[in-house]
Design a binder for these strands. Structure first.
Length: 421
RNA sequence: GUGAGCGUAGCUCAGCUGGUAGAGCGCCGGACUGUGGCUCCGGUGGUCGAGGGUUCGAACCCCUCCGCUCACCCCA
């Protein structure tokens, strides 16, 4: 029939349809409430940025920058990139709009799509959504504790079960290089006993070896030095205070000395929330401190901390809670042209009172209208025909118990639109 | 980028050692001229992912490609 192939979504991208879209809306709504309670304000940055922002911000040698970005040349030849994450953009905006000149910590949140060109799998998409927050302008551990508390509140309010919070410190520009050197030396000694991936990591990214999941490697990895034992005085004290404040707040967390984050800008506190039903991609959310990022991007010193929730994964973890709320309060069935006009007028009035009304679109049999209403999940059907118009009384049928009564226009509005305002 | 599994009706799937396609659900109509869900009856449904090869004959065997899924790498 059709000579054209149907057009399909781009690989790794997807439509979020009802009723799922309602769950997405609910998650975002709750997130906004909690952000507000913690005095965060929304920031909306462009989805496209100059490529250099991510190269410098995320890190020239990270996987994200070297092989996962959607990068293209604009018509004037400049290189642009679809954002693979949002922190770099927020900090860019912070600098560009001179937010450091305002007093106090700048607390911002965002939500929206990010893009990474990876092979799709469970919980991983090429267009995925993040809900995140950044607190910029202080290196105090009180900020770390507060932001983690906020996350904890958010998760509880959304009723997420079975998640656990992992916390670590990855040190600063002073102590981390020293540690990496020490680790590399140790790794060289045992290199040929490790899995092939770890042999490669020894060269490319020694920290990742600590995160290796191959069972045979575990005993060897256990014996390797751990960063938390080699933090400089400042970092150690900072991490101790963060933990102390989290304990004050009764927030359950696990210190996870081998947790490694993938972006170059992280310093000191890093954290992650993992969940059991996400397939192999068990990280629901990740975050940490980035005390040097502003300066890396040419800005003033502006220590900050932030996190990002993978919304797709979050929803996966929540499971398919059957939240099939009806989208309609009242369905109007009509018989005949005159009745349609009457029904349309009634619908307009009711809708102006925020009643969700659906009107039959085509002249179909009443039987069919009832069937459609029933499948829409409408609780009531209003039947409008010539008789009803003549008597100025409508038949109102309750679809859940099949009871039917006749109501006047006033009674109808009373019932659905509430007391007249 | 690498690997594995899977592509048969709108959906979920069956289809034996090759003999050219089936079920359930859905959809449309009827039983029931203005009263849904249940039931019964009838109807609609597919170049078996695409192309090529082997064969008298291919959904089934072989090759190539495409798509989806999961996993690796890495990450939210």
């Amino acid at each position: 029939m059709s000579r054209h192939q149907p057009i399909r979504v781009v690989k790794g991208m997807r439509d979020i349809l009802p009723p799922d879209s309602a769950l997405w809306g609910r998650v975002e709504h709750v997130a906004r409430e909690v952000f507000r309670a913690y005095a965060y304000q929304e920031i909306r940055t462009p989805i496209v940025e100059v490529t250099e922002l991510f190269a410098r911000g995320v890190g020239q040698d990270t996987d994200i920058v070297t092989k996962e970005m959607y990068t293209f040349d604009d018509r004037d030849g400049s290189s642009l990139t679809l954002r693979p994450e949002a922190t770099a953009s927020v900090v860019r905006s912070y600098i560009e709009n001179r937010m450091h000149e305002r007093p106090g910590v700048k607390k911002l949140f965002y939500m929206g799509p990010m893009f990474r060109r990876e092979r799709p799998q469970k919980g991983r998409y090429r267009q995925f959504y993040q809900i995140g927050a950044e607190a910029i302008g202080s290196e105090s551990p009180t900020v770390d504790a507060e932001i983690i508390e906020m996350l904890f509140v958010m998760l509880n309010r959304l009723n997420l079960q079975g998640a656990s919070m992992l916390v670590n410190s990855v040190g600063c520009a002073q102590c981390r290089p020293v540690f990496i050197e020490r680790l590399r030396n140790e790794l060289e000694k045992i290199k040929d006993q490790l899995c092939l991936d770890c042999q490669r990591r020894t060269v490319t990214n020694p920290l990742r070896v600590l995160d290796c999941k191959v069972p045979e490697d575990q005993p060897l990895i256990e014996s390797l030095p751990v960063l938390s034992g080699l933090l400089c005085e400042g970092c150690k004290q900072h991490f101790d205070e963060v933990q102390s404040y989290l304990n004050d707040r009764k927030i359950p967390f696990v210190v996870s000395p081998r947790m490694v984050r993938g972006l170059d800008y992280y310093t000191r506190t890093t954290f992650e929330i993992v969940h059991g039903n996400l397939g192999a991609q068990n990280a629901l959310l990740g975050g940490g401190r980035y005390d040097g990022l502003s300066e890396d991007l040419g800005g003033p010193p502006a220590p900050g901390i932030g996190f990002s929730i993978g919304e797709d994964r979050f929803i996966l973890a929540l499971g398919s809670a059957d939240n099939a709320e009806s989208s309609v309060d009242l369905y109007i069935a009509w018989m005949g042209e005159a009745a349609f006009r009457h029904a349309a007028e009634l619908a307009r009035e009711l809708r102006s009172h925020n009643v969700a009304v659906e009107v039959a679109s085509d002249p179909v049999k009443l039987k069919k209208s009832l069937e459609i209403a029933s499948r829409l999940g409408a609780p009531y059907v209003l039947i409008v025909g010539d008789d009803e118009i003549a008597q100025a009384r409508y038949a109102l049928k309750n679809l859940s118990n099949s009871e039917q009564q006749t109501v006047s226009r006033e009674e109808l509005f009373q019932r659905f639109a509430g007391p007249a305002s």
